[in-house]
Structure formats: structure tokens, C-alpha cells
Write a protein that binds this DNA or RNA. Sequence first.
DNA 1: ATCTAATAGTTAGATGTCTAACTGTCAACC
DNA 2: GGTTGACAGTTAGACATCTAACTATTAGAT
Lengths: 147, 147
Amino acid sequence: MEEDGPRLTTSLELLRWIGWAQMMAGQDWVRERDLSREQSFVLGYLVQNPGAIQRDIADVSRTSAASVSSLLQGLERRGLIDRRTEGGNERSKRVYATLEGAELIEGFDAAMAATEDAILAPLSAEERETLHELLLKVTSVLPRPTR
Amino acid sequence: MEEDGPRLTTSLELLRWIGWAQMMAGQDWVRERDLSREQSFVLGYLVQNPGAIQRDIADVSRTSAASVSSLLQGLERRGLIDRRTEGGNERSKRVYATLEGAELIEGFDAAMAATEDAILAPLSAEERETLHELLLKVTSVLPRPTR
DNA sequence: ATCTAATAGTTAGATGTCTAACTGTCAACC
DNA sequence: GGTTGACAGTTAGACATCTAACTATTAGAT
């Protein structure tokens, strides 16, 4: 049931394939809400980390403070976030998702879970278990995602 | 070695995690070449599919003909692609990556393969084989990526 | 206390991407 | 062969993002 020659499709490609399917599904989801990928990432991060300062947001989104500033202006204009200085520190701004912002992004994780459940549909329970263990091994040495 | 309760980290999340790591690695790579994600996708597609018309490019990139038009203008200005009408059809334009464009995107697949090899490092040969079979099952029912 | 360097954030201008409205070309049908 | 509708692509204008240069605040050194 196996071959010795080079594979026609490597695991690497299959992983990218799955990632691609997830990415495309996510893209549809955020576009329906008039959010860019970056905006939805930041909004989700703010729900998980209320009161984060812009510097941190820039770090976890792997971008610059200037880009975060512009991005937050867009979200603030739509009333999806609040910014205020707190605790006597005048140069840091604490950023919060508003109720409206939190509700807008709310279904994101659920939508992704549904997508991924559909993706795993061809596997039996035992196979899913095996896959899970292998993935755990792989991710154990991977830098953690920031949300 | 197993639990019955809900998982702390689902396979779904692990898959997304791996996809995230790949995406971030790709992001670094394209940014070093002053390409956007969309541009690098299209440029890579053109290397694989020389002479594609803009309508097809729009379809596979899941965007509009207008966006493709703008995007190609940017690539053309940098001399990374050529556009010309061929075969007596005046309304379709055949698009080709130039030598320079092909060279710019050339290392992309290799860079991704290197990243993903690093990702799979924690697995033994047998484990990789098992993972590969499971991933094949999963992807067998997934819409194929367009490059 | 004052100077300096690091830090947090903003603004200006360039480029990229998107939507809506447009031009030009082809094909089908009478 | 002329009209109509579908099709391929572009343009204009709005918004998002990025880089570089900037302002303002804080912390540390002396």
C-alpha cells in the first residue's frame, strides 16, 4: 500500500491545502461583515484581551504601531472599539472592543469550528484521535498563535 | 493516556494553529519582496498557468475582475508580468509572468517547503506516514486549492 | 533638576484593494 | 446585417495599509 518514490503530494502540501481551505472560509466570513483580515484579527484579540495597549496589538499582529493606529481609527469610526488612557499613564491608550464590536466578531470562532468540523468529516473517531495526537506533537514546538 | 471530557485543545484548533504558522511565515517571505499576499498569489498562479486570462485569475483568487485589473497594473508597472491579446480575440488579455517576475516568486514554494519541514520535525518517519494518510483522507473531499 | 534615550502614538503621502459605473468586444438570434 | 445581451476589462472614488517622519510622554542617568 506504499511507495518508495517521491510523493506526488507531500504532507506539507496537504497541510497547506487544509490551511488554504480554512483561510478561504474565514475570508468569506469577515467580508460579509465588512472587515479586513487584519481588522477581524485585532477585534478578536481585543475581545480576548480587553484593555490591551496599541504597542501590544502591533506586536501580536506582526505589524507597526502606525498601521495599528490607522486600523484602530477605522474600527473606532464604526463604533466597534473604544480607546482611553487609564492609570495615570498618558502615553499608553487602553483599547476595548465595544459591545457592538464584540457581537460583530462573536461568531467567528464558532464559524471556524463549523468549517473545521466539516473538514474532519471523512475521518472515523479513532482516526481523529490519532490525528489529534500527531498534531499535538507538531504544535508542541511551534510558536503559539496570539489568539 | 486519554480523557473522556472535552478537549482543552481540539484538532480543529491545532489545524488552525499550524495554518497560522504557515501563513505568518509566508507573510514574512512576501513582504521581503514588496509583494502583497494577493500579488504573490497571482504571480505564482501565472508561473503555473502562463497565458491565463484575467477572468480566470479573478475566479481562482476569489475576487473581482476590477481588483485583478488594479492588481495587474501594479505588477506590470514593476515589469513582473506582460499582457497581450492573442488569437484574434480582442477582449481577452493573455497574462504572462516575465522572467523577472518568475524569478521573484521562484523561491516561494521552496521557502514554504522548508517551513513545513521544520514544522514536521517532531515526528518520526512512521508518524509522518500516518499523518500523511490521514491528511489525504481529509483533503480528498476538500475543494482543491488553485495553486 | 535636567538632559537623554526609549517608548507610545499620530500624521502625511504612497500604494493596494474594493465597489459601482463604465467602455469595448463577441455571439446569438431574428 | 442589425440588435441585444453576455462577457472581458478599465476607471473613479473610497477605504485600508504601509513606510517615514513627526509629537508627546516616561524613565533613567548624572
